[in-house]
Computed example of a mutant assay.
Amino acid sequence: MLTLTVACAPYDRVRPLFDGRVALPGIRLVPVPIHSEQSFPRAFTRAEFDVTELSLSSQLIQVSRGQGEYVAIPAFVSRAFRHGCIYLRADAGITDAKGLEGRRIGIPEYQMTLGLWLRGILADDHGVDVNGIAWRTAGTNQAGRRERLPLELPPGMDVRPLPDGATLNQALLDGEIDAILSPTEPLAFAAGDPRVTRLFPDPRAAAMAYHRRTGFHPIMHVMGLRRDIAEKHPGLAGRLYQAFEEARRLGLAEMEADLRHSSLSLMLPFLAEEWAATKALLGADPWTYGLHANRAELEAIARWSHAQHLSRRLLGVEEMFHPETAGS
């Protein structure tokens, strides 16, 4: 029997695979329920897991370079609207997205998928020259973060780390940077410090408007299978994709069933109303996997990755993923 370690956050859409409700005959899965802050460095530096959650942006970089220990399967286990992740220094004089142009902006890693998405949105929707911004990298609230892969940027692009010991939160307060792009709230913002504000005061409204214009529900992470294992076991990548798809469908059905009970299993009193609003915006199946349903979004991601000098070349959608998932 083939044994595979599977490193992924314990999402509702993955849980049926972790708890055995979804099984692959002849394969023993060993769940490693960790979040991406732990799995990404271990996957990209030493390919520690057989199957793992991957940063989509970092994976595209490696595919474009002909590198990488993993081949992706289009199970998009993490998606997130990121309009609420742009923080400003209140006295920086930035009143709209175009005002970010030419500024010094902090981000944990230039290559991270959040940055890829937000730069794409700023460029496409607001006409911002994102390659002309001075990008400064560091941990948002904890020092020591570094790019997980080396960058290959052209001369003239200004992307560099802040000094050792620096954080984006403190750099913003000290006036060393004008804004932050981060999935984690800067501590000052979380504490209600009036010196830090959001670019989009109503990020939910901004995200909903963006989805209505584009149809995109931003893909952040994919699942990856170690390339050597995929080559040794033909058919495995396709079977894994189907297993993740089945787990996603079960998770969706479980959500719907839970809302039909007279009492809620989660401490969210307006969960039913939020779920109804989500489906009204995103459709009855709001978290799709596969290439067919996500092709336009994946093409935009590939275009941004190349335009932002992350990918060496413009990638086609099919070459981003294992060939066994081409029909998904």
Score class of each variant (00 low, 15 high):
A253Y: 04
C8S: 15
E274I: 12
G84W: 01
H292T: 13
M267Q: 10
E256V: 15
E256A: 13
R313L: 01
R65F: 00
H322C: 03
A284G: 13
V317M: 09
A166K: 09
F189R: 01
A243Y: 05
A272F: 07
D202W: 09
F18H: 14
G327E: 14
A307L: 11
V222R: 10
S39T: 14
A302R: 00
A90S: 08
P201E: 00
Q67R: 12
R82D: 04
P41A: 14
I107R: 06
V317R: 03
I219A: 00
H35V: 05
A280C: 05
Y210L: 08
P108M: 11
P269W: 07
L168A: 06
S57T: 02
E101K: 08
F18Q: 15
A90M: 01
E299Y: 01
M255H: 11
F49H: 11
D164F: 03
L199I: 02
G26R: 15
P234Q: 04
L118C: 10
P155N: 05
A296E: 12
P194L: 01
S263H: 12
L24G: 00
P74T: 06
H126C: 04
D202E: 10
R104N: 03
V14R: 09
M157W: 10
D202R: 07
R21Y: 05
P323H: 02
M157A: 09
D96K: 05
M208N: 12
H217R: 09
R136K: 07
R148A: 05
D158R: 14
M255A: 15
L149F: 01
E37W: 08
T45G: 08
L187I: 10
F321Q: 06
V130M: 12
Y70M: 02
I94W: 00
L282A: 02
R119N: 15
W135P: 03
W275N: 04
K98H: 09
A280F: 06
P194W: 06
R313K: 13
V32C: 14
R313D: 00
R204T: 10
E245V: 01
F244L: 08
P234C: 08
L236C: 00
A284P: 13
V159N: 05
W287M: 08
I105K: 03
D258I: 03
Y11V: 02
T184R: 11
A9E: 15
E246R: 11
G238N: 09
L298I: 10
A188V: 03
R212A: 07
R313V: 00
P183I: 13
C85S: 12
L252Y: 09
A230P: 13
I73H: 12
P218D: 01
